Simulated scan of single mutants.
Amino acid sequence: MSSVTSADGTRIAFERTGNGQPVILVDGAMCYRDSGPMRPLAEQLAKDFTVYLYDRRGRGESGDTAPYSPRREIEDIEALVKDAGGSAHLFGISSGAVLALEAANAGLPVRGLALYEPPLIVDDTRDPVPPEWVTELRREVAEGRRGDAVRRFMRVVQVPAVAIFLMRFLPAWRKITGVAHTLPYDFEVIGDLQSGRPLPADRWTSLTATTLVLDGGKSPTWIRNGTRALADVLPTARYDTLPGQTHMVKPTALAPALAEFFGAH
């Protein structure tokens, strides 16, 4: 395990594997190096790239510094880009896709940007996330009610009630609740992009990196609509669908699309 120091002094833990152009993987909510989809994806990509697998701040072995700001997470990625030699490809999934997009739009030297299913609500195909819901999430975290915060999050991402009930009996529950305090971070990154309104056309006009925006062919209509809408407003994007995939995308399906895209840039 290695680490970089972010601009505010926070230690960000990462692993580097493989050889080739650098690719930094940006996790979604509640995920980190040892819990989530990125390690098996890194193993696939390491055949062709130098892959950076890191713990977002507040997770795993990375530090955390109050007060939180999405800008600080962008600075974390910037520190990793510097370690990678000054430029890198970025891949983000779910809320991590929004973070990766904001980092590239902020001017980080990104060669190629790939995004999988950012959780954007842009129409009436599902209910928006109301501001008061996020306020309650913050309150649960502040009061140390991590289990309640996780259950709240799972309900809003439409995990079936039976699965939510059973999950607290699984070994993974401890890992999940261990990073529950970072759930408000993801909603700060997403901001007002789950309001049910169309995406602003002028939000990401500084983006220069060629961008691949992906969704899964079996994912819900609302998230596919949001993904397609994002591709339509980004100045440098193309949109594609991975047949048969859902939000829980299989690394064996995702890695070839990323390798082809990053290899061409």
Results as ranks from 00 to 15, higher is better:
P256Y: 10
R39P: 09
I93Y: 06
D123I: 08
E188M: 15
G20K: 00
A209Y: 00
T205M: 09
V134S: 11
Y185K: 04
R126V: 13
M154A: 08
F91E: 04
G147H: 12
G244Y: 10
I164H: 06
I12T: 03
T211C: 00
M167S: 09
C31P: 05
L101N: 01
A259F: 09
R57D: 01
V159D: 08
A42W: 01
V110G: 00
A79V: 10
G28Y: 07
P220A: 07
T135D: 11
T208D: 00
V233P: 01
R139K: 13
Q245Y: 04
D83G: 15
G86M: 02
L80M: 02
D124I: 05
F153D: 08
F262C: 00
R57K: 11
R138K: 06
I24V: 14
T65S: 10
R16M: 13
P37K: 07
P256T: 09
T241E: 15
P256W: 14
A180W: 01
P198I: 01
E15M: 07
L25S: 03
V179E: 09
R72N: 04
T50V: 10
H247I: 09
L183E: 02
M1T: 12
V51R: 02
R146F: 14
G63Q: 10
A259E: 10
M1E: 08
E102W: 06
V134N: 15
L120N: 08
V51M: 05
T65H: 07
P119V: 14
I190F: 11
L108W: 02
R228G: 12
S2H: 06
P243S: 08
V129T: 06
D34Y: 06
S35G: 12
V23P: 01
A114N: 00
S2E: 06
P251Q: 10
A46Q: 03
R238V: 04
A42P: 03
A84W: 00
R168N: 11
G216A: 02
G63D: 08
D215H: 01
G36P: 02
T10L: 14
R57S: 06
V4K: 00
K218F: 14
I223V: 08
S94C: 15
E15I: 09
R16N: 12
A97Y: 02
I12S: 01
E136P: 10
G86F: 00
T205Y: 05
T182Q: 11
A201M: 11
L120Y: 14
R71E: 07
W173N: 04
G63F: 10
W173C: 03
L25T: 02
L137K: 05
E73C: 01
K82G: 13
P109N: 09
C31R: 05
K82W: 12
L108N: 03
V249W: 04
V26N: 07
G226N: 12
P22S: 04
T17W: 14
D148A: 11
M30W: 08
A253D: 07
V150M: 14
K175I: 13
L53F: 07
Y68N: 14
F91H: 08
T125K: 07
R145V: 15
A172E: 13
G60C: 14
G107S: 08
E132F: 06
A7M: 13
E61C: 05
L41Y: 02
E75C: 14
V213T: 08
T135P: 15
P200L: 11
S69P: 02
T5I: 14
